[in-house]
Design a protein around this nucleic acid. Sequence first.
DNA 1: CAGCGCAATCGAAGCGCTTCGACACACGCA
DNA 2: TGCGTGTGTCGAAGCGCTTCGATTGCGCTG
Lengths: 336, 336
Amino acid sequence: MRISDVARHAGVSPSTVSYVLSGKRSISPATRRRVLESIDVLGYQPHAGARALASNRSNVIALVVPLRPGIHVPVAMQFAVSVVTSARDREHDVLLLTQAEGESGLRRVAGTSMVDGIIVMDVEVDDARIPTLRSLSHPSVLIGVPADTEGLTCVDLDFEAAGRACVAHLAALGHREIALVGQPPSVYERRTGFAERTVAGFRAEAHERGVETTVVPCDAAPAAVAASVTGLLDERPGVTGLVVHNEPAVGPLLDAVRGLGREVPADLSVVAIAPDDIATETSPPLTSVSLPAEEVGGRAVSLLMDKLDDFGPPEVTLLPPRLVPRASAAARPALP
Amino acid sequence: MRISDVARHAGVSPSTVSYVLSGKRSISPATRRRVLESIDVLGYQPHAGARALASNRSNVIALVVPLRPGIHVPVAMQFAVSVVTSARDREHDVLLLTQAEGESGLRRVAGTSMVDGIIVMDVEVDDARIPTLRSLSHPSVLIGVPADTEGLTCVDLDFEAAGRACVAHLAALGHREIALVGQPPSVYERRTGFAERTVAGFRAEAHERGVETTVVPCDAAPAAVAASVTGLLDERPGVTGLVVHNEPAVGPLLDAVRGLGREVPADLSVVAIAPDDIATETSPPLTSVSLPAEEVGGRAVSLLMDKLDDFGPPEVTLLPPRLVPRASAAARPALP
DNA sequence: CAGCGCAATCGAAGCGCTTCGACACACGCA
DNA sequence: TGCGTGTGTCGAAGCGCTTCGATTGCGCTG
């Protein structure tokens, strides 16, 4: 079943069929209808390889998904799924690359023209893949922001602003000493962009408002969370507000706080940076800055498509944080 | 940079370069060396589309990942990653399809020759995609086992045997009344193969051994787990053994049991069906049947590759369960 | 020593599509 | 009436690779 079969069936030339399909030249309505009907009747599907060869476009993009210690898989998958969905909306498929494939994987899929562009998740401040991406002639979009963004297209939640927003919210409620319960230590050790930027925003806003801070990296295991929280509240008894930037830790954290005989939000306010579904499932529902995975994934695809059609210069897109008050943050308790 | 450039550089014809690359005809060691050197010097990478067009092989396989309510994303990703890794080991890439794309997605990637074969995860007992898969001329492998396996290639842990093994272990320890804390209700409602098979094995073995059983589907949220466990132990005070087939529930379940003042394993034995990392991270470490995601993913790829080279008939591969005793199951407590 | 078989290589056809230039025709305008 | 302009369609030339059959030169065998 080839394009020439369709052409014969519709009584036109193969090139006409091609133009009907691509819309790159005008075709009379009557011809278009006949061709589309033939395609339908014959169940024609163009050969992807032939198309890629002739047009120099594969209509596939590569997505590098993170598989590193400390990442929260369900959230990473939210990003991945939204990339796939958005890509499909724009007639593209997604080739899955793992972190393990590394830079050679990027070179391979680009060098063999297997993909038209690349989306990279979980970018580090000084990411080893960036020189490779720069060296490729293929466009790419980073989900996350490295230190040097020169010539790169990046998109992410504005984590610095998110950190600031959490502090501002707590400060406005009167809290004078707050702590950030953060990502697992390994995430900071490899200098993952989003984690570092959150801490920076958290500290900067607190400094500007004269609020005292502590930052506690935190492993996800419930026991580790309990230990961190207990240790924290023990060492810093004045802490009345917590910012949690660690999805799997939110449940265990609330349990641990309760286990210490403290009520949320009466004795301790908690603000999370997390996807809405995680923030709303807890009891009490968490005041949170939502992590708009869907929007970020969709934006990454849009930006990549723009680069494929070479519109505009590279740019860094930081989505403004939205803090939604729920039931976990309240005014600072009166001093005992 | 084309194959003819390499050929010129090495002083041979393009077809010789091709044969060096594919190994489909014998090439003298001297020529092979020259060609490989030229490839290296020039940094040649063959054009994937051209290759696919000429050879009728894309060296890409499609993987349909599950995104349904109730599935445990990290475990699903373990499967996916092992599929990608195994595929790469065999010179194939992986195209990511989401459940949402449905049957039309399968038809599309097969019909356009975008992929050579398809791997489908999370198969239901009466899966809607199976007729489509049967109708395609492309080979496919299911991870999971439907009711009618005629003509299909499937691979999975033998969940029925796993259910049996858990019961057998508890029964051997003297337990006479046990319960299965299962997957979320939605998983049973859509009749997911692995969940149903576990229940069947659990019930059959218990019946044969004269052990009384209860089956409790269970949502993953900690509160829901606590409610299920409390309700269960309340209604069935004679239960001294639990089989847990629900990854995210194991932590909350242990907490809930403890919350009821019962010790594991002194008062209540627990056996899990879960990946080893989940079973070993708890306190106490769980006696468990491991879920060999890596092996299943690898097998799925092997089976698909065999079908691509059309070796052998379709077959259902059920990996035998391995029950590893750890610290969560002990002899049934003496009656009060 | 003619003839054979085998190993190593080449040339050319063709995979199924896109795209460029050419062409035919209709229309409006001078 | 003739000419430019624009629209719709066609034909042919590739895109870069694989693969088939043909060819060459060699060492053997009978």
